[in-house]
């Protein structure tokens, strides 16, 4: 599903990613953890073309992203990737001028060109699934953070993506709201949705991950099933990080 080969990215002299090779198979829940500044979010944003990179290759479901692509080619590749990859942001980024329902049907109507009735029915079903049926016609601005993030998840799901990227989805939420959002994400994982999740929520990693990748200073420090990486880490940096996260 996702194959990343020797991905490298620089911001001027600073090397943000220094050769990342990583695969995600269909049905995997890949959780990326690690100290801040390790390149986790940048890596995630390279997967759907929100960030350009300098070396290496990203392959998603048959579409290849390369550094320095010709503009037209790049735009086409980005669109192909984004039609299959959903994204959920730390700051939700719901569209404030649209109602909750309109947020969800915006892309199905104007990108996927689905019939309005079908898009609405699907959006209402998704709202039901994230527990927000009653909020269909409110503006996102009046919702709590946890509710907004659940709407954002429904918005991503509405495009029927093959994989959803979660960029620190609970980092701006309090513990109760974090629980609401993680519960929805766990359900999705249990249903077999392919997910790549950058998070500090170790409980979610333990419960839902199929693979855990530890990022440190632009490299993958270690990878493996959660039972191995979280319970018996090989690297000292991982042990230190897990000790701090547990506090």
């Amino acid at each position: 599903m996702i194959r990343v080969h020797e991905l490298a990215k620089r911001h001027g002299a600073q090397e943000v990613l220094r050769g990342i090779t990583l695969s995600v198979e269909k049905g995997d829940v890949a959780v990326i953890i690690g100290p801040s500044g390790g390149g986790k979010s940048t890596f995630l944003r390279c997967l759907n073309g929100l960030e350009r990179f300098d070396e290496g290759r990203v392959e998603i479901d048959g579409t290849t992203l390369l550094p320095h692509m010709e503009r037209g080619l790049e735009a086409r590749a980005h669109r192909a990737v984004r039609s299959r990859v959903g994204m959920v942001f730390q700051q939700f980024h719901l569209f404030p001028h649209l109602s909750v329902l309109e947020n969800i049907i915006e892309a199905p109507l104007h990108v996927a060109h689905k019939p309005p009735d079908e898009a609405r029915a699907r959006a209402l079903a998704l709202l039901e699934r994230v527990g927000l049926s009653s909020k269909a016609h409110t503006r996102p601005g009046v919702l709590s953070g946890g509710e907004q993030q659940r709407v954002a998840i429904a918005r991503a799901l509405a495009m029927d993506p093959q994989v959803i990227l979660f960029d620190e989805p609970t980092s701006s939420l309090d513990p109760r709201m974090t629980g609401e959002v993680l519960a929805v994400m766990s359900d999705l994982a249990a249903e077999g949705l392919t997910m790549v999740v950058v998070t500090h929520a170790m409980a979610f990693a333990r419960k839902a991950a199929t693979h855990v990748h530890v990022f440190h200073e632009g490299r993958v420090l270690e990878s493996g099933p959660p039972g191995q990486v979280l319970e018996a880490p090989r690297e000292a940096v991982t042990r230190e990080f897990l000790k701090l996260s547990a506090v």
Binding site: N48, G49, L50, A75, H78, R79, R82, S83, V85, G86, M87, F89, Q91, H93, L94, F95, E106, A107, H110, V111, A112, R155, A156, M159
Partner: peptide
Amino acid sequence: GQMEAALALGMS
């Protein structure tokens, strides 16, 4: 983030 969210949904 508004532009990014829209792009991530597949909009041009």
